[in-house]
Amino acid sequence: MIVAENVEKRFRDVEVLKRVNLRVEPGEVVTILGASGSGKSTLIRCINGLETLSGGKITVDGHDVSTKAGLVAARRASATVFQLFNLYPHMTALQNITLAPVEVLKLPKTDAEARARALLDRVGLSAQADAYPQQLSGGQRQRVGICRALAMQPRYLLLDEVTSALDPEMTGDVLRILAALAAEGTTMVFVTHEIEFARHISSRIVFLEQGELIVDLPTAKFFAEDGGLAVPRIRQFLSKMKKD
């Protein structure tokens, strides 16, 4: 379980997250919505320990990310997929995927490679195992990024706008993979601007407004007239999204 309690984050004197509370139970898919600059990425980066908290507490399966040992354990439990892929440019797809399993999980190299090939096969990239990121299209890179995250067999998958750097066709490829993962019961925390997709796969949706988590509802309720749509700010946000 991921638990964020009264999380605060300031960059110098700018408050980016204000007393945010969030719980993610195993098996849930939680989508974070919010306007640009509302703090979605920052929240994800607080969960995986890329930002240090200014206040409050985050635990992943009970491990406090602000302690050194806790962060190590928390990072074992989760994996992150990034908007701009962030693949290691000097390594092939296969090497990108096997690096952490070998170095962190201490998996034998052959096992790690077998695991990586199985994952690549699953996302339709078995032929690209030995390609370098530079030789892959954006959609292919992101699929490698997903494999890299899955190879760590994380209990939680953190995804920050993983399709927003892709064109629509490639977006479809990646979203299909994520939908399959969700159907298998993979726990995900998901930042996206793909509202329809979020509606389709999420169990819950939370809404960030200028660093405050103002709504946290089951998906159906979020899109209901007497639920999320009753909040003017959300109605406005959703109609703007539809137009884009």
Binding site: R75, F82, L87, V104
Partner: peptide, 27 residues
């Protein structure tokens, strides 16, 4: 070296030493 690439290495649980020797230095 792109900060995002280092972020990816950090969250995967690699130690500072490994990040330096396997990612930063080779690039």
């Amino acid at each position: 070296v792109d900060a995002g690439v280092i972020d990816a290495a950090k969250v995967s649980g690699l130690s500072r030493f490994k990040i330096f020797t396997r990612i930063v230095l080779p690039i």
